[in-house]
């Protein structure tokens, strides 16, 4: 077993992992943060998207051992400290950017990383940025609207 320590949403988390333990499994099972979803497990759908050292990454396609010492942000860290929805989350709710909600954690994390890189993205830039996030319910229009609304609010 390999011992790893990382900072997850600002708090230190440690555990013993196998070489093959995926980062997403460490987050869900050891850190108990089940907001990050596994949709495909084949690097295609983006439901498992989190931030590693500030950059969007598919946590099903990274080993827990590779994240030793890293700063991780997951969907649980997107809420305000009092537990109310953060700006992007609230915009998804307001604009019906989710139906079943399975893809939503990954969509919100990708949106947050887009808005960190580009405060005022065009509709085309939003759609292109979401290339690695698949939603089987919404048809994407309301996801794009939600991100546009969040961008306007975050200024």
């Amino acid at each position: 077993m390999i011992s790893v320590t990382m900072t997850v949403n600002g708090k230190p988390v440690s555990g013993a992992v196998e070489g093959r333990t995926l980062l997403v499994d460490f987050l869900r099972e050891t850190a108990g943060l089940t907001g990050t979803h596994v949709g495909c497990d084949t690097s295609q759908c983006g439901a498992c998207t989190i931030h590693v050292n500030g950059r969007a990454v598919k946590s099903c396609t990274m080993l827990a051992a590779e994240a030793d010492g890293a700063e991780i942000a997951t969907i649980e860290g997107m809420a305000n400290p009092d537990g109310s929805l953060g700006v992007i989350q609230a915009a998804f709710k307001e604009h019906h950017g989710l139906q079943c909600g399975f893809c939503t954690p990954g969509m919100v994390m990708s949106a947050a990383s887009l808005l960190a890189e580009n405060r005022n993205p065009s509709e085309a830039e939003i759609r292109e940025y979401l290339e690695g996030n698949i939603c089987r319910c919404t048809g994407y229009h309301n996801i794009v609207k939600a991100i546009q609304a969040a961008a306007a609010q975050l200024g």
Partner: peptide
């Protein structure tokens, strides 16, 4: 190449 998350790794 791929999508933003793939390009980050």
């Amino acid at each position: 190449i791929g999508d933003p998350a793939v390009r980050n790794r």
